[in-house]
Design a protein around this nucleic acid. Structure first.
Lengths: 358, 358
DNA sequence: GCGTCAGAGAAAAACGTTTTATCGTCGTGA
DNA sequence: TCACGACGATAAAACGTTTTTCTCTGACGC
C-alpha cells in the first residue's frame, strides 16, 4: 500500500516475490535512492538530511521489510574490500568441527604470508556446512560464486564421486580423501600397520578393530593396512566390530555386545577416540583390564589420550601438519592456476602410553 | 606487458595494485568482456567460440592471475540467488567449535521454517571466526556488508564492551552474554547453586571450584551463584583453583599443584568438562577416590560425562535449547526490525552420576 | 539588487560481473 | 543477385548498492 511508482526507471510493476530494494523505499518515501542509502547507513547527519526525512525513510524501510543485498553492498563498498579473495572451508554438518578452526587458522596464515608477494589482496574466510552426502546441493559449488578457493573436508563416498564427475571452477584441496584430479592432503598410510605392530609387541595374538559406520576413507585405508599386517604376522585377519556411528555411545554398545556374546580379543584398534571412550567403559564393565586383558590403540583425534584411564596409546594423523599443508597447497593453487594436482602425504604421530604397556 | 588499453571505457591506466578483471583479460586477449565471461564459465561450446579463442583467453587469464570477484558474480548470478539473505555465526578462533554446528543447524531450521511465511527468500549461512578479544577488527561488522544477521558466540569482556559501544547495523543475538541493548540467549542462572547443593548432599563440607582463565561470563555467573550458596549453607565461600586456560592439561596442572600444596577439599565444581578431564587424572595420581574423597560436579559441555571413570555428574546448559532459541530469536529480529531486544533464559539440565554418589 | 552560502536532495557514475540482443561476414543454394 | 543460416563476436543492459557531483531553493550580508 505504501508502494507507488515514481521514478521513471521503475515504472514496471514488481513481481510479488521480488525483494525490496532501496529503490522501493525511495519510491515509497518520495526521495531518491541516494538519500535512502545515506540514511540507512546513518550518515544522515553529515549529509544534513532533516530528521523528519530520516524517520520517514526509516519507517518505510521497516514497514517494507527491507533487507540489504549483501553482495551488492560489498561490491560497491570500501577500497579495502575491493581486492578481496574469499577462501572457504567446506565441511559436513555431521562431522566434528573441532579440527576445522585449526585448518582455518592455517589457511589464513598461508594466505597472509603470500600476501606479501601478491600485495594489496585481502582475504576473507568462511566456513560452510553441508549435510553429509549432499555436497552436490551446495549452492555456488559449480558456479563458483561463493568462493575463490576451498578446502573440502569430511566428505562421504557419495560426495567424492560427485566431485570426481563435477569439478568446481576454483582451486580445491581435499582432506584425507583421494579423488582423481584433485589436490589433497592425506595422512601417511601405515598408521594401521603400526597399530598392529604395537599390539603385537604388547603380546597380542587375537586382534580386533572397532570402527564406525559409515567407514571414512582414511579409516578404511588404516583398516586395510591393519588387516594386511595381521595376515602377514599371524596368518589371519582381525575381527571387526562395527559401531552404528561415531559416538561414544555407539562405541560402548558395539563393544559391550561383542564382549557379551563371548567375543574374545586381546588387542583392540579403535579408529576414533570418541568410539574408544565408549569402548573403555564396556571393557571396564566386563571386568577386563587394559592392557593386561586387552591392549588398546586409537588414533589421537583429540588431545584426550593422556587423560584416559589408563592413558591411551595413539597412532594417528598430525592434524597440525595436515592443516598447514592444506593451507599452503590451496594458496599455491590459488596463485598458480596452471599447477598440477598434488597429493601431500603427512607423517603420522605415534605416542605409546599405558594402554599398550603392561 | 600483455595489457593494452583497447576498450574506450578503460583508457585510464590502472593502478599497480588494482585487481585483474575480465576487462583486463578482454583487452589483453583482444576480445570483448562478454566473450571472456562465457569462456571462463565454460559455456564456450554453446556459444560457439572457437577453440583457439578459448585457449587464448584461458591462457591470458592464467597469465594475468585472474581471480573473479565473488560479490560481483553473486550479484549478477541466478534468480535463485537473487533473494538471498546471509546469516552468519561469529565465534572466536580460540573457543571450541563443537557447539557451533548445532547452532548453525538450528539457525537454518528456524530460517527455513519462516521462509514459508516470507516466501521466495533463500538463506545462506556462514561461520566467521575472529581472534578472541578482537571482534572489533572483524570486517563488515559495523558496515553491515558481510551478513544480514548474526549470532555472536564466545566473546570476551573486551568484545562485549566493544559491542556495547558499537551496534552493528543488523540484528544480532548473543549467546551466554548479557550486553545492554542486545538480544541474547542465556543459560538459566542457578546451575552454580545446584552444583553446590549436589555436593552438599554428597556430604561435602569443603567445596572448591576449578576454573579456567579468562573467566567466561557464564562461568562467572555460575561461580558467583556457587559462592553465594556456599556462604549461605556453610557460612564461608569456596576455595578457588585457577587453571591457565581451558585445556585438559591446564586442569591437570592446576589440580595437581593444589593437591601437592596440601590443598584440601572434599567437593569440586569444575566449570568445563575439558578441565575436568585433567582434574580427574590429578586426583587419581594423588591417590584420592572420587567420590569418596572428593565428589566432582561439572557442566556437561560435551557428551562425555557417562564415560568418565567414575561417570561424571553434570549440571549445565542445554545447548540444544540454547541453539534453538538463538535461531528463532535471530529470525524473529530479521523479519521484525522494530522488535525489542529480548533475553531468553534457557533451563539447565542436571544429571546425577557416580562422581557424586557414594 | 546581487553575489554567496547553506540546506536538502536528485542525478549519475561507478563496482565487476553475466546475459541478451545485435551485428557483420562468409559461404551457399535458389 | 538475393535471401539465409551459421559463425564469431560485440555492445549494452542489468544486478543493487554507495559515492560523488550537481542542482535548486531561500536566506543573508553588502
Amino acid at each position: 500500500m505504501l508502494k507507488k511508482a515514481k521514478s521513471p526507471s521503475s515504472e514496471t510493476l514488481k513481481g510479488p516475490h521480488s525483494r525490496i530494494t532501496v529503490q522501493d523505499i525511495a519510491n515509497a518515501a518520495k526521495v531518491s535512492i541516494g538519500t535512502v542509502s545515506t540514511v540507512l547507513q546513518n550518515r544522515h547527519v553529515e549529509r544534513r538530511i532533516p530528521l523528519q526525512t530520516v524517520t520517514r525513510i526509516r519507517e518505510t524501510a521497516a514497514a517494507l521489510g527491507y533487507l540489504p543485498n549483501i553482495n551488492a553492498r560489498r561490491l560497491r563498498s570500501l577500497k579495502s574490500e575491493k581486492n578481496n579473495v574469499v577462501l572457504a572451508l567446506l565441511t559436513s554438518f555431521e562431522a566434528p568441527l573441532n579440527l576445522v578452526s585449526q585448518f582455518l587458522a592455517e589457511l589464513r596464515k598461508a594466505a597472509e604470508q603470500s600476501t606479501q608477494a601478491k600485495n594489496g589482496i585481502s582475504f576473507s574466510m568462511v566456513i560452510e556446512l553441508f549435510p553429509a552426502g549432499r555436497l552436490s546441493e551446495m549452492p555456488g559449488l559449480l558456479t563458483g560464486d561463493h568462493c575463490n578457493a576451498a578446502i573440502i573436508m569430511n566428505t562421504t563416498p557419495q560426495d567424492d564421486s560427485f566431485l570426481a564427475c563435477n569439478r568446481p571452477p576454483f582451486p580445491v584441496v581435499l582432506v584425507n580423501r583421494l579423488v582423481q584430479g584433485y589436490s589433497s592432503v592425506i595422512s601417511q598410510p601405515g598408521a594401521g600397520k603400526r597399530a598392529l605392530e604395537i599390539l603385537a609387541k604388547a603380546h597380542c595374538k587375537k586382534p580386533a578393530v572397532l570402527r564406525g559406520n559409515p567407514l571414512t576413507q582414511s579409516s578404511q585405508r588404516r583398516l586395510e593396512a591393519f588387516s594386511r599386517a595381521s595376515t602377514e604376522l599371524f596368518g589371519y585377519s582381525m575381527q571387526e566390530i562395527v559401531a552404528s556411528n561415531l559416538s561414544e555411545e555407539a562405541g560402548y554398545l558395539a563393544m559391550r555386545d561383542f564382549l557379551k556374546n563371548n567375543g574374545k580379543c586381546d588387542g583392540l584398534y579403535v579408529v576414533s577416540d570418541t568410539l574408544c571412550m565408549g569402548a573403555y567403559l564396556a571393557i571396564r564393565e566386563a571386568g577386563l583390564r587394559i592392557p593386561k586383558d586387552i591392549a588398546v590403540v586409537s588414533v589421537g583425534d583429540y588431545e584426550h589420550a593422556d587423560y584416559f584411564e589408563p592413558s591411551l596409546t595413539t597412532v594417528g594423523a598430525r592434524h597440525d601438519l595436515l592443516a598447514q599443508k592444506a593451507g599452503e597447497l590451496l594458496v599455491h593453487h590459488l596463485f598458480n592456476p596452471a599447477a598440477e594436482a598434488e597429493v601431500a602425504h603427512v607423517p603420522t604421530r605415534e605416542v605409546l602410553r599405558a594402554s599398550t604397556q603392561g
